[in-house]
């Protein structure tokens, strides 16, 4: 279908991004845009919040913005 997603918002996908480089919440949201995942905005926020709580990434300030990251 035209609405089938080509990007999936999963813990594994988020982990891979955060291992690669520190990202802000906005950076992450850009990777999982609703038009790519087929999720609503609310679902995206809720699922991403649950994933980040589980991953419990390291945090650091870069240019006055909170960035999350993981080490392998």
């Amino acid at each position: 279908t035209p609405s089938s997603s080509d990007v999936q918002l999963t813990e594994d996908a988020v982990r891979r991004y955060l291992i690669r480089k520190p990202m802000t919440t906005k950076d992450l949201l850009k990777k999982f845009q609703t038009k790519r995942t087929g999720l609503s905005s609310e679902q995206t926020v809720n699922v991403l919040a649950q994933i980040l709580k589980r991953l419990n990434p390291e945090r650091k300030m870069v240019n006055d913005k909170m960035h999350f990251y993981l080490t392998e």
């Binding site: 919440t25 992450l28 949201l29 850009k30 905005s41 926020v45 991403l48 919040a49 980040l52 909170m66």
Partner: peptide, 20 residues
């Protein structure tokens, strides 16, 4: 739009602040 992205980022940060 960027404003929707801003709103989503703010909502996500609010969720995480409750946790952190």
């Amino acid at each position: 739009s960027s404003s929707e992205a801003d709103e989503m980022a703010a909502a996500l940060e609010a969720e995480l602040n409750d946790f952190m």
